[in-house]
């Protein structure tokens, strides 16, 4: 009559896990919707808080690096230049931070109900993706306010968003699973993200990276993404192909390794958390 399930020691097959993950998409929507709504209930500004992070950083960067230190901005107004870079960065930083905490934050669910565990970090990222899209809408308004008009190159946003999502999911799955076992992760991660921000061309243009460091820099998946966003949004041309492909490859590898670790340890989450 029905499917028979075997529950034994160790982990299930990869195919079965992926099928189950697909079956859980309704629940993903429910949890992501909850995350999004809960985050802004009882706050006066509500969804406007989604914009606070990139806007405040844009303001600070513009004053410090645009007016005081005079970092190059590829001939663009510094606010536009930094905001374009902050778009993927903010999504990655806030999304993965929330996702990293997601399993531990839902102890009651993890220890009392079964569902594909990936759904919790994925839901955090989905909610952050909505924030990202709102921030992108605001970028459009600022862009228009500067008297500029979006061109066909903006269509490149679709693959860029896909690459950043793949990267974020990989990091989210790995850090969320690791945080179940080692709570040290929640202390280490903000530090790592801080360092990563400075190592990525968010504040400064990719062009100011010395040639001999460029190869190493390109391995940072955020380099291709940030540079890609600027090419597409500000310069009206396609992203640097080599840079973006490197980004995509590293992101995919991150996803595979991140999920492999998650899959290896998820059976014991409820025992350890």
């Amino acid at each position: 009559m029905n499917d028979v399930r075997r529950i034994g020691p160790g982990r299930g097959s990869v195919i079965a896990s992926l099928r189950e993950l697909w079956g859980g998409r309704g629940l993903l929507r429910a949890i992501a919707g909850r995350e999004f709504r809960v985050r802004y209930t009882q706050s006066i500004l509500g969804v406007a808080w989604a914009l606070a992070h990139p806007l405040v950083l844009m303001g600070v960067f513009t004053v410090v690096f645009g007016k005081i230190v005079h970092v190059g901005s590829e001939g663009q107004p510094y606010p536009l230049f930094s905001y374009a870079g902050l778009l993927p960065w903010t999504f990655l930083a806030t999304g993965t931070t929330l996702a990293m905490r997601s399993l531990v934050a839902h102890v009651d669910l993890v220890t009392k109900v079964y569902f594909p565990r990936e759904l919790l970090p994925l839901a955090s990222l989905a909610a952050s993706l909505v924030d990202f899209l709102i921030a992108l809408g605001v970028f459009l308004l600022v862009f228009l306010a500067y008297g500029r008009v979006p061109g066909a190159s903006w269509l490149w946003l679709a693959p860029l968003i896909m690459v950043q999502a793949v990267l974020a999911v990989g990091i989210a799955l790995f850090t969320a699973a690791l945080n179940v076992r080692f709570r040290d992760v929640k202390h280490v991660m903000p530090l790592m993200l801080q360092a990563w921000l400075y190592m990525s061309p968010v504040i400064y243009p990719m062009a100011s990276v010395p040639d001999r460091l460029r190869g190493v820099f390109a391995l940072n998946p955020m380099a291709g993404l940030v540079d890609g966003y600027r090419a597409v949004l500000l310069h009206g041309h396609a992203p640097d192909a080599a840079l973006l492909l490197t980004s995509a490859a590293v992101s995919l590898l991150t996803l595979i390794l991140g999920w492999a670790y998650f899959h290896r340890v998820e059976a014991y989450f409820a025992d350890v958390i």
Binding site: R6, I7, Y114, A270
Partner: peptide, 16 residues
């Protein structure tokens, strides 16, 4: 049975 955790050894079978 709920699959919240897995056995250390042995097997649980569940239908449906």
């Amino acid at each position: 049975v709920a699959r919240i955790t897995v056995p250390t050894s042995g097997t649980v079978w569940v239908r449906g």
